[in-house]
Design a protein around this nucleic acid. Sequence first.
DNA 1: GTAAAAAATGTAAGGGCTTACATTTCTAAT
DNA 2: ATTAGAAATGTAAGCCCTTACATTTTTTAC
Lengths: 339, 339
Amino acid sequence: MAGSTIYDIAKKAGVSIATVSRVVNNSDGIADKTREKVLKVADELGYYPQAYAQGLARKKKNIIMVVVPVLSNYFFMEVLAGIQDEISNYNYDLNIFNVQSNGKDNMFPQVKNIIKRQWADGYLFISTHLRDTELEQLQDYDMPITLIDESYPGMDSVSVDNEEGIEKAMNYFLENGLTRIAIISAMKTSKPGRKRIEGYEKALNEAGVTVEEDLIVTGDSMYRDGFSEQNGYEAMIKLLELPNPPQACFCTSDIQAVGAMKAMEEKGMEIPIIGYDDITISNYIGLSTIRQPMYDMGTLATKKLMKRMKNREAEPEHKVFAPELILRSSTEKEIKEKA
Amino acid sequence: MAGSTIYDIAKKAGVSIATVSRVVNNSDGIADKTREKVLKVADELGYYPQAYAQGLARKKKNIIMVVVPVLSNYFFMEVLAGIQDEISNYNYDLNIFNVQSNGKDNMFPQVKNIIKRQWADGYLFISTHLRDTELEQLQDYDMPITLIDESYPGMDSVSVDNEEGIEKAMNYFLENGLTRIAIISAMKTSKPGRKRIEGYEKALNEAGVTVEEDLIVTGDSMYRDGFSEQNGYEAMIKLLELPNPPQACFCTSDIQAVGAMKAMEEKGMEIPIIGYDDITISNYIGLSTIRQPMYDMGTLATKKLMKRMKNREAEPEHKVFAPELILRSSTEKEIKEKA
DNA sequence: GTAAAAAATGTAAGGGCTTACATTTCTAAT
DNA sequence: ATTAGAAATGTAAGCCCTTACATTTTTTAC
């Protein structure tokens, strides 16, 4: 039973392999009796077409592959939920391929090989943060790719205006008279990391506030690229131990903010804090945050990819979601006191 | 460039396809000049073997596939992190296949087809909760499968003694003089759901406490099979609106406990609560919980699978981790007051 | 009952790779 | 220079399917 092939079925059912193939694929033009007979044998022998043989013979694999560097992270999880729900509307299976980032700069070769190997009919890249020159190379392979949480002119993309998000958070603090604002960032050096810090500096500059390097911090723990409670915790400890601690804090992910909140509690010093993402938990722990529509990003990207697979010629589309400031208790008390 | 094959390389490099194959696969017995020449052409043409053709020609796919019903859930995420880290020690790629559960009983056919299609060299099943009769059928296909968070005599498995976990939580409450203990469960009807409730009832019975049906609740929101903050929130509201609310509460997942804690806060009624899992966030919000070593389960299961792939004959091994009661602030205040 | 049309089935050529075996080329010993 | 043996390369079959095209069987109309 282990490895019955189309030949086994054909032989046992007394038909040709073409007929078996037709029955299994539900092609029409098959006599009912034949169909039944074949189906019966196929069931007895536990037959179902081998994915690899089928993929080779057809051009199509009926697989959408999600390519992602860090699987275990809340942002990814939410986006994935959207993808998953949307894809269930189509006749495609979902495969997730995890590329190791190792902090190093070796992701591109892996990604390139995935494309070359032709695993799937279409790909969703989540936060791979490849360079434009690299994405350009991938285009040569003429595979439908939709980017999530990043963008590049030549490919469909779904992202969020990060700068706007940061600005909203910063302005909220500034409007409430808080000027010594810290930023807790993961991976200061990465491309998106730098972008966020730039946004932070820009907002301060526009408000005529001098940027203090001391207030730009990150934790030391780099597990999950720094997107962890621990990292936020460490960062906040650093901030609170400063001779002159900040009046408010912006965090580049909710998960870090959770750690930061614990640090504040332990130190007995509470400053208003705003996170980034709006993971479901944030609503339950009263964390103010910049909401990214992660789930919607997943569904929309999937839709775009499906569309692209049908029409390869259309101009690439870029959806940029506007982030939303969600205020909860983590920004309340203290600011009111100041007012 | 899009679809260069081994033939293109062979032609352009002036060698046979066998030689190209050897070069690409790093087989030895190839002259250095030839290797260089072929490699150069392969690079120019952006060649890399097609996964499907290779998988068909070899018996091996070099793929481990994780089969899981609900992707976006914290338990899964942690287990996956372990799998991911462990697998990076071997020359295997990781694929995740998501089977739709739809609450209905239709998962088995999907799982069966995955196995039949021979996607991978080995499989990790996480919380699929198939029946023994179903798993027995899968054995016929003679594929290495390791179960996580469930067990079956005929396959390797890695799980946690759920009953013991519940007992520990219940005993903690009971020893502290609390007897009216509620349980918030996801999916009362599922196999693991029922098991947990049984454990709960058993613990009460042994302590000579009558089970009150009112105290066994679940939320109404069934998103993610009930493993959500919202579900826990709803359940706790129900409990607190009882004429005679419970003195303590056990929750079958931390994520539900997060929702339950919010409900308590809103209602201004705080009772000691213990969750289940010990997701990383729990430590940061002071949630007492029963720790499942999720990460370790992932690594160990992966190791077992690799071992099994080498030796198909050995007796199946079953690792049952002992859950651990982790006490944090969510059980502190109130119990101390009572004492 | 016959012939033409329609339906059902079969044949065989790929799809892109690996690999056992055959062949050629090179090396080194005489 | 010759040749045995080693090293390098090539040939071709096979992995399991799909599908265009050819062939056979059944149906329909007269």
